[in-house]
């Protein structure tokens, strides 16, 4: 492939195969390219393997065949610490520590750069705290920074999770079923903030989603996962009628 193509691709997979149980393939020969600095949405009804695909992309699950490249570096070869500068991962339930405050959860994003001295006592470098404040402000919940996560609403938690990932400063963010549980208006507002963050911080976002209406409103680039394979664009006939998927008009 050409030099030009490489520069515009954030993430690429090549013949990816994955199964939890032998021969029971969830991902079958998945090859995809994610454009740099944009918001890409991976569509598909529940149970098609979106979560599995994102975990393989994030290096949490190992593909049985094929490989994942982020900015031309192979994911499998990276140690967790250096991988964290490339990829951030937000799971479906967000993976926030409920008994810590919004601020403390955002600071988790800096752990890859922190040692074990004062940080283990809960004292983070001043610079990181400034950045965490800025990230919370960017997501519009600076005023909730001292609230424990367990006391925040669903939408507020989503913002904390993005702020944590922004502090991590990865080049690619993978977010599973992001904003899927929110109502349309709130989901669009948060997606708008993501788009702005993507431009401002030069971050590539990959979101999985099963609500077609939401995807239509928000995506710059859409892929559909169907029967273990990824195809560009919106779902084909077979996928549209599946449960959990709204029909596009």
């Amino acid at each position: 492939m050409t030099q030009e193509a490489d520069q515009n691709i954030a993430l690429r997979t090549d013949g990816l195969w994955f199964a939890y149980r032998e021969q029971d393939w969830v991902l079958k020969d998945v090859s995809l390219s994610i454009p740099l600095g944009k918001v890409t949405i991976i569509m598909g009804p529940s149970g098609t393997g979106k979560t599995t695909l994102l975990k393989v992309l994030a290096g949490i699950l190992r593909p049985l065949r094929g490989r994942v490249e982020v900015l031309n570096q192979t994911v499998e070869k990276q140690a967790q610490r250096s991988l964290s500068t490339l990829i951030g991962y937000i799971p479906q339930q967000l993976g926030l520590v409920r008994n810590l405050t919004a601020m403390e959860n955002v600071l988790m994003g800096a752990l890859g750069r922190c040692g074990h001295g004062k940080v283990l006592l809960g004292v983070f470098p001043r610079r990181e705290i400034e950045h965490a404040k800025a990230a919370l402000d960017l997501m519009g919940i600076g005023h909730k920074s001292d609230e424990k996560v367990i006391h925040l609403s669903g939408g507020e938690r989503q913002r904390v999770a993005i702020a944590r990932t922004l502090l991590q400063r990865p080049r690619v963010v993978l977010a599973d079923e992001f904003v899927s549980d929110l109502d349309m208006a709130l989901a669009l507002e948060i997606l708008g903030r993501i788009r702005r963050a993507a431009q401002q911080e030069q971050i590539t976002f990959v979101l999985s989603m099963h609500r077609v209406g939401l995807v239509r409103e928000s995506a710059e680039h859409v892929l559909t996962l169907s029967h273990g394979k990824v195809i560009p664009g919106f779902p084909a006939q077979g996928v549209q009628g599946a449960p959990g998927v709204e029909l596009p008009q």
Binding site: S84, I87, G88, I90, G95, V97, L111, Q168
Partner: peptide, 8 residues
């Protein structure tokens, strides 16, 4: 998984 992926 989430906190682990920050390089913690």
């Amino acid at each position: 998984e989430a906190v682990g992926s920050t390089g913690a």
